[in-house]
Amino acid sequence: MPDLFQQHSPLVQIDFGELQDNAPTIEETPFLGYLNLRGKTSNMAFVAAVLKVLGVEPPTTANTMVESGDYRIYWLGPDEWLVITPTGQAGKVQSELNAELKDVFSSIVDNSSGLTLLKITGENATKLLNRDCPLDLHPWVFKPGQCAQTRFAKAGMTIAPLRDGSGFEIIIRRSFADYIGLWMQDACVEFE
């Protein structure tokens, strides 16, 4: 494994530490492993291989996510999932999946450096996100276990409510992260 200290987060130029008093807390969890998993759930071999390596079948209900040990699997499409692993484990999981899925129509692509994760928590978390996310984030509608791909301002994001109800995690693309960070900092002026 390469030296983790040589990594730089895409948010290296953004400081979320000095936000307004009533602003939600914005915290990056950098350097997680992200695998883009493709396959057909109609193919039992695919489902079985995923179950074997990740300990859980890929969710088939749209806009839901499952957890299994250290892994989380987000539904992204009818044949597409995002597997989140702890830091530095994406390569290992990718190899295991590749081995199990050698003869099965599937694709496992490492996108670990392509994404990063932000936790947005606190009283005004929904308010901040709904500043320019068109999705209804109300807890009656968007519950733990659900996830969605949508947009924030003019960039895409994958969002899920946190289990403890304290807020949301959002997964954003590396190249848009700085823009989203600046947009959120600017939006927080409201929360003086």
């Binding site: 692509v109 996108n111 450096s113 994404l115």
Partner: peptide
């Protein structure tokens, strides 16, 4: 049998 995945952001 083809899957496409964007990795533009993953690689420098």
């Amino acid at each position: 049998e083809v899957f496409l995945t964007s990795v533009t952001d993953h690689w420098a």
